[in-house]
Amino acid sequence: MITELGLSQFYQVKHLTDAYRNIEVKAVVSGMNPGRIYVDDADNIKAALIWVHGQSGYQLVGDAESKPFRSELRTYMQTHILPELMALQMTEVETVLLMIAGKMCLSIWLVQGSLTMARSMYS
């Protein structure tokens, strides 16, 4: 089940971001930059959706095959995240790109309040 972590729990996704090149993501996880973190399973974290406040965008890190993210992410974003963004009058959000071992790419974007997700495979 997708869950939002509290700031004091952000360290729990450090293992996902150690090899990640995006310094802003690492800064959110370390608590140095503002952001939010949503995980696939709070008891066994394999993937995380990280809101990077300074980028006004999300980054996905971790296991591309995470079952909770694959099956629940769209609904979670529509019912939890999208209403918050709309309340903040944010109608556009940066594209999210996930590549794990060069094999999967997932893009999520919000334009004019409409959520779109696309998945394609790369080798």
Rank of each mutant, 00 (worst) to 15 (best):
M1F: 05
I2M: 08
T3V: 14
T3M: 09
E4S: 08
L5R: 07
L5Y: 12
G6V: 14
G6T: 14
G6H: 12
S8Y: 06
Q9K: 07
Q9F: 03
F10N: 02
Y11R: 11
Q12N: 09
Q12G: 03
Q12T: 14
V13H: 02
K14R: 15
K14Y: 08
K14G: 13
H15C: 03
L16M: 05
T17M: 00
D18K: 13
D18I: 06
Y20M: 02
R21S: 12
N22S: 06
N22E: 11
I23M: 06
I23V: 09
I23P: 00
K26R: 15
A27V: 02
A27P: 01
S30K: 13
M32P: 02
M32W: 11
M32C: 05
M32V: 12
N33C: 06
P34F: 06
P34I: 05
R36K: 15
I37D: 07
Y38D: 07
Y38H: 12
V39T: 13
D41S: 07
A42F: 09
D43H: 11
N44H: 14
N44I: 01
I45K: 06
I45D: 10
I45Q: 08
I45S: 07
A47M: 08
A48G: 12
A48H: 00
L49V: 04
L49P: 02
L49R: 02
L49I: 04
L49K: 04
W51E: 04
V52N: 06
H53N: 15
H53Y: 13
G54W: 01
G54K: 09
G54R: 07
Q55S: 10
Q55I: 07
G57R: 08
Y58K: 00
Y58W: 15
Q59L: 05
L60F: 03
G62T: 02
G62C: 01
D63K: 02
E65V: 00
S66T: 01
F69G: 11
R70Q: 15
E72C: 05
E72W: 02
R74M: 07
R74Q: 09
M77H: 03
M77R: 04
T79G: 07
H80N: 11
H80G: 03
I81G: 06
L82A: 05
E84D: 15
L85G: 01
M86N: 15
M86P: 11
L88E: 15
Q89A: 11
M90G: 05
M90Q: 11
M90F: 06
E92F: 08
E92M: 13
E92D: 14
E94S: 14
T95S: 06
T95V: 13
T95M: 04
T95D: 11
V96R: 06
V96H: 10
L97A: 12
L97P: 00
L98D: 00
M99W: 08
I100K: 10
G102F: 04
K103A: 11
M104S: 13
L106W: 09
S107H: 10
S107Y: 06
L110N: 11
V111P: 00
Q112N: 15
G113D: 06
G113L: 10
S114L: 09
L115K: 01
L115P: 02
L115F: 07
T116A: 15
A118Q: 12
A118L: 04
S120P: 00
S120Q: 12
M121A: 01
Y122G: 10
S123Y: 04
